[in-house]
Structure formats: structure tokens, C-alpha cells
Computed example of a mutant assay.
Amino acid sequence: MSRTTFTLDDLKRILLEGSGVPEGADLRADILDTDFTDIGYDSLALLETASRVEREYGIELDETVLGDATTPRAFVDAVGAHLSAQPV
């Protein structure tokens, strides 16, 4: 199912579904500009997250998204850019 918006809440839900909550992490805190590694998510968790986003939102993320999107804000922005570039 293709959707047109992607929010921090969407990202948190997908992270929880795919990887759970890392020990000591608080996803209710202001994490927008916190590096994923500081939250407790490694590259495998982000690969799983990206894969789930692609399936759920019907998009294909560039490989550079995972390298460049080191914070939730950057990831949400990158997914949003892909969604807005899709033909309606």
C-alpha cells in the first residue's frame, strides 16, 4: 500500500516492529536529531527499517539514504522526499 506522508511516529513504529527498543533507549524522548547509534540502532536495524519502509510505502530508497540519514530527522526527510517525488 502506497502512502503519501512519513512522520517520526511512522519511523518509530517501524523501528519497534522490526528491531524493538534498544536497552536504555527512550523513543518517547526528543530523538529527532540524535544519531541512530546513540539511540541504540545499528546498521542492520536501519537496513531492516528501510526495507520495511520500501514495502509499506511502495518506494525504493537510494543506497545513500542509509549512509546519509544518521538521525531520525534525516531519515524522515529522505523518505518524505522520495514520497513527494512519486507520480500521483
Score class of each variant (00 low, 15 high):
residue 26 D to I: 00
residue 28 R to D: 15
residue 55 R to M: 15
residue 10 D to M: 11
residue 17 E to R: 15
residue 12 K to Y: 12
residue 51 S to V: 12
residue 6 F to I: 06
residue 53 V to G: 00
residue 54 E to W: 08
residue 33 D to C: 09
residue 52 R to K: 13
residue 56 E to F: 12
residue 6 F to D: 00
residue 32 L to H: 12
residue 42 D to G: 09
residue 15 L to H: 06
residue 49 T to K: 13
residue 50 A to I: 01
residue 44 L to E: 10
residue 12 K to C: 13
residue 14 I to M: 04
residue 12 K to G: 13
residue 23 E to R: 01
residue 37 T to Y: 01
residue 15 L to M: 06
residue 19 S to C: 08
residue 23 E to K: 03
residue 48 E to P: 09
residue 11 L to E: 12
residue 20 G to F: 05
residue 37 T to I: 09
residue 54 E to D: 05
residue 36 F to G: 00
residue 9 D to T: 08
residue 11 L to S: 09
residue 47 L to H: 12
residue 50 A to P: 02
residue 15 L to A: 03
residue 46 L to S: 08
residue 7 T to E: 15
residue 41 Y to S: 05
residue 25 A to R: 03
residue 56 E to M: 06
residue 52 R to C: 07
residue 45 A to F: 01
residue 23 E to I: 06
residue 32 L to S: 13
residue 10 D to F: 15
residue 39 I to R: 05
residue 51 S to G: 11
residue 37 T to K: 10
residue 33 D to E: 09
residue 6 F to Y: 07
residue 29 A to E: 12
residue 15 L to C: 04
residue 35 D to C: 05
residue 43 S to A: 09
residue 41 Y to H: 05
residue 18 G to F: 13
residue 22 P to S: 09
residue 53 V to I: 05
residue 23 E to W: 11
residue 18 G to L: 12
residue 34 T to Q: 03
residue 42 D to K: 07
residue 26 D to Q: 05
residue 26 D to F: 10
residue 25 A to G: 10
residue 46 L to W: 05
residue 52 R to G: 07
residue 35 D to N: 05
residue 17 E to S: 10
residue 32 L to A: 12
residue 49 T to H: 12
residue 47 L to F: 15
residue 24 G to I: 14
residue 30 D to S: 10
residue 36 F to R: 03
residue 26 D to Y: 11
residue 11 L to K: 11
residue 36 F to K: 04
residue 46 L to Q: 08
residue 45 A to N: 06
residue 10 D to R: 11
residue 6 F to E: 01
residue 33 D to W: 07
residue 57 Y to G: 02
residue 50 A to Y: 01
residue 54 E to R: 12
residue 15 L to N: 02
residue 35 D to P: 02
residue 19 S to P: 01
residue 38 D to E: 07
residue 6 F to M: 01
residue 44 L to F: 10
residue 25 A to T: 00
residue 29 A to T: 08
residue 48 E to S: 14
residue 46 L to F: 07
residue 9 D to I: 07
residue 18 G to M: 11
residue 46 L to M: 13
residue 41 Y to T: 02
residue 20 G to P: 01
residue 20 G to R: 06
residue 43 S to R: 14
residue 51 S to N: 10
residue 5 T to A: 01
residue 18 G to T: 14
residue 40 G to D: 09
residue 34 T to R: 04
residue 45 A to D: 01
residue 9 D to Q: 08
residue 19 S to A: 11
residue 32 L to D: 14
residue 45 A to V: 03
residue 5 T to E: 01
residue 50 A to W: 00
residue 7 T to I: 13
residue 23 E to S: 06
residue 26 D to T: 02
residue 25 A to C: 10
residue 33 D to G: 11
residue 32 L to P: 10
residue 43 S to I: 15
residue 39 I to D: 02
residue 28 R to G: 15
residue 23 E to Q: 07
